[in-house]
Nucleic acid binder design. Structure first.
Lengths: 356, 356
DNA sequence: GTTAGCACTCTCACCTATCGAGTGCTAACG
DNA sequence: CGTTAGCACTCGATAGGTGAGAGTGCTAAC
């Protein structure tokens, strides 16, 4: 479908802008194409329906509105939403009461960054009528904070690796025939590793492995474990996005535009499209601003009916994650942006606190 | 809707049973009400359609089949499926090739029981055309295996608690003004706790807290941390089911009976109905057998169109979890049961291995 | 007990007519 | 020249009507 795109956003007189805004506002609430009469009735525009009709036609020419069919009202295009989003200076901030409630909720949860991002998604889902999505804060290169070893049997140990960035990783370590160990021995190994490997990245840790002697039993086991640690770190660093958590899909299901279940299926496969989400997350994280992706601006075809409002959180250069919402293109952008802004700000505070 | 339920399952001659089976088999594959002619054509029954019609009428009298309307074919009732499920001695075992593939997949994943149950759900979703669901193996009373402490700042530490049952819990510990600590001190505290608290449950650990002196700095901090440990254990033990993970909802969406999205919404809210799922998990875990819950046998109204096939895994008296599938009532029970049996068996092996 | 034959029922798909919301155009107005 | 009233026109949505087809239930014969 060829779609005319307005080339310059600038020259659109105030009245036209107001009418565009009115159309979007009306359409967002009713989900019905909006006609000229309804507009003059419900929004005190001070002009007749005929005038509005002329302007609607202009806006359609400009590619900001469409017609489902001749005798129907107007519906915003993706470009229309885009123009609208660009033009709104003031987003709707979250009411103070809700802000407090949310802060309280975050206080309740276990002190672990691993849990925050899920809560963020759930919170966003509850506040907007859309699905909340969030990723954990993931570092470029993770740093070892702490190593712990638990004996499973004589030749196997469970490695617990705490990262400076907050995550905990678990892995099994299998030892050579010759290197039978008990818990006491593992404690000594962990002690050695904590002493020499704390605050190192995968690369740094690897270079220090060479210093471990092959003759000494203790050091030999430590090397073995160290190798495993490096592998775990590598794997973690390599993953583009560890996890994309989403909640509140039921909200999206309730939107009338997803009444036929095949549309809905698209939304779901969109959310399972971790690759694309991962890409987005990466690009959003790189900039530090709130990003809005409207309908067909999303590359995958199955996301042409949904919009994303995403914001990064965390510390640049350290760990960075993304929170946001996914809803129908017909969503209340001011509200969504305001809410996402608040939650990402809150997550920033939390991460700061974690590193303080 | 009043529904006649067959009182005795016993006296139903073999031919009638065969026809019931045929109706179910046909309906499961076509999703269409099945008529007498189609039955004699596709299943070599050796009788005419008129005879089949008589038997169908009998089966309907018995409450095992229904009519959507007069001129439509027959559809199994929940009671019909129930009779069928009771009567199948041999479920469909998983092909050896697939068994191997799955074992391989489980081998690939991080050696951590925390991950297995998710993989189980994903696997089940892939094998059956239904949603896979699984809960982590949760103990009645968790045992401490290992305590580790990481300094956050002078007055705060991050507690990492490894449980004998495989889970890892993380929590923050705040210390009194007087008890400023550094990492070295925390190491000593952790050492002390590991020495005295390993293999204890919440109750046992609490009783030993009293033995810690108030005068000694080390023991005072240890007590503080110990109290936090007990709280964490309590919380964990108290949770009925920690998490119900599900995957493959897209499979369910594809079933024609969920073409209208409101039916689908029901399925989703059913899955978010953690309370009921938790109850089920509890009752299934208690028995040790595979359980099948068909349609209206599920108490919540929103689950009247779906069936559950659940099986427990783990060690009785120790940690127990549940794996299974959720699909439309019109699902292939032999296949589902066979698959769930295999996966729960596999999980058993894995848990055994963990405790060995 | 089984079967052929047949009338009967009910849904589904298709067609048609009607209704009404909303546009787009034209001509008049300030 | 922008604005407005008036009006013909378009087109989807809804309702009513019809025919085809699938499948039953009954009866009478085997």
């Amino acid at each position: 479908m060829a779609r005319r795109i307005r080339r310059t956003l600038g020259p659109l007189d105030l009245r036209s802008q107001a009418i565009l805004r009115a159309v979007i506002e009306e359409y967002v609430t009713t989900a019905q194409p909006v006609g000229s009469v309804a507009l003059v009735e419900r929004y005190g525009l001070g002009v007749s329906s005929a005038t509005v009709r002329n302007i609607l036609a202009e806006l359609e020419m400009a590619g900001l509105l469409t017609h489902p069919h001749t005798s129907a009202g107007r519906v915003p295009t993706d470009a229309g939403y885009r123009f609208f989003v660009e033009s709104i200076a003031d987003t709707v901030p979250l009411p103070a009461v809700e802000q407090l409630m949310i802060r309280h909720q975050f206080g309740q949860v276990e002190f672990a960054s691993e849990h925050w991002f899920r809560l963020a998604a759930t919170t966003l889902a509850g506040l907007t009528r859309a699905a909340g999505i969030a990723t954990p804060a993931k570092p470029r290169a993770a740093h070892i904070r702490r190593v712990d070893l638990v004996a499973v049997n004589e030749r196997m140990a469970s490695l617990i690796l705490v990262l400076r960035e907050g995550a905990i990783k678990q892995a099994a370590v299998t030892l050579d025939e010759a290197d039978v160990v008990d818990q006491a021995m593992l404690n000594r190994v962990a002690g050695l590793l904590n002493e020499r490997f704390t605050d190192l990245t995968a690369v740094q840790a690897e270079s220090r492995l060479a210093a471990l002697s092959d003759d000494d039993h203790l050091e030999r086991v430590a090397r073995r474990v160290g190798e495993r640690i490096v592998r775990v770190l590598r794997e973690y660093d390599g993953a583009a996005v560890e996890e994309v958590f989403s909640d509140g899909l039921l909200n999206v299901m309730e939107a009338p535009e997803f009444a036929q279940s095949d549309k809905l299926r698209q939304v779901f496969s969109a959310l399972e499209n971790r690759v694309y989400l991962g890409e987005l997350v990466g690009s959003v994280a790189a900039t530090g601003r709130i990003h809005v992706f409207i309908g067909a601006e999303n590359r995958p075809a199955e996301m042409h009916d949904v919009s994303l409002v995403l914001a990064p959180y965390g510390r640049r250069g350290r760990a960075i994650g993304v929170v946001g919402v996914l809803g129908p293109t017909r969503m209340s952008y001011p509200q969504a942006i305001g809410t996402v802004r608040f939650v990402s700000g809150l997550m920033n505070e939390l991460v700061d606190h974690l590193y303080a």
